[in-house]
């Protein structure tokens, strides 16, 4: 059944590798994205890796759906055992709790933990970037400790500050921009997750690894003074 290739309108197709959030399924998504990046077929526009599928945009003036599907089938055969480039590892400073993480008390209570436990467990994990999406620079991370799983807010906040670190179910993530949002906020990073002057515009990409380093409110302020000047 998987992988399967489905049309997504007339300018894209999707390759589905499964119906679960799973590191091995995600590895296959990245492998195809990497194979297409190394050897793009004529008419390939861009790819969007997500948890368990790859969205592939192509130019229907250069190739029709049947040919696009053939190109993808070929790339799938090539990339079965492709070694992926070493993932980037990034340490992200986070000020936990207080004004930076207004929901840390709820996350602690929901899981029968203290706030210090939440910080210890969250900062003790190593996470994989599954995807960036929904809004610019929003990072979806896999690898949250089950002891921290917490449902979303019943009503989303109209505005969540950029850099906020949140929990939704078994996922944790970082808001790249100030947007509305329903994740439980436990902290905030002063590191810009979106820099429109840079190429690529985000410090993290799908497949990268993340660790969180707890910092104090003073360190957060110092970070912002030294690093925040160039951000939008």
């Amino acid at each position: 059944m998987f992988p399967r290739i489905l049309p997504v309108g007339d300018t894209a197709l999707v390759v589905e590798f499964g119906e679960r959030i799973d590191p091995e399924i995600h590895r296959q998504v990245l492998a195809l994205a990497y194979a297409l990046e190394r050897e793009p077929f004529p008419g390939l526009r861009e790819t969007v890796p997500t948890y368990r599928s790859l969205l592939v945009y192509y130019d229907p003036r250069q190739l029709l759906w049947d040919e696009a599907r053939r190109q993808i089938s070929g790339a799938l055969e090539q990339c079965a055992d492709i070694p992926l480039p070493e993932p980037k590892e990034l340490e992200i400073p986070v000020a936990y709790g207080g004004e930076f993480g207004p929901d840390i008390g709820f996350v602690a209570a929901h899981n029968g933990l203290s706030e210090a436990d939440v910080v210890r467990l969250h900062a003790g994990g190593t996470y994989t970037v599954y995807m960036l999406g929904f809004a610019p620079g929003f990072v979806y991370l896999g690898g949250l400790a089950e002891a921290l799983a917490t449902p979303r807010l019943p009503t989303p906040r109209p505005s969540v500050p950029a850099g906020s670190v949140g929990i939704a179910g078994l996922q944790t993530g970082i808001y790249g921009l100030s947007t509305p949002g329903g994740w439980q906020l436990i902290g905030r990073t002063p590191m810009p997750m979106l820099d429109l002057q840079r190429q690529p515009p985000t410090p993290l990409g799908p497949g990268d690894r993340v660790r969180f380093i707890p910092i104090s409110a003073q360190e957060f302020a110092a970070w912002q003074r030294s690093d925040g000047a160039g951000s939008p």
Binding site: V8, G9, A12, E16, V48, T50, R52, L55, G133, F134
Partner: peptide, 10 residues
């Protein structure tokens, strides 16, 4: 569904 890519027109 598990979140995945959404093009214009979807």
């Amino acid at each position: 569904v598990i979140s995945d890519g959404v093009p214009p027109g979807a």
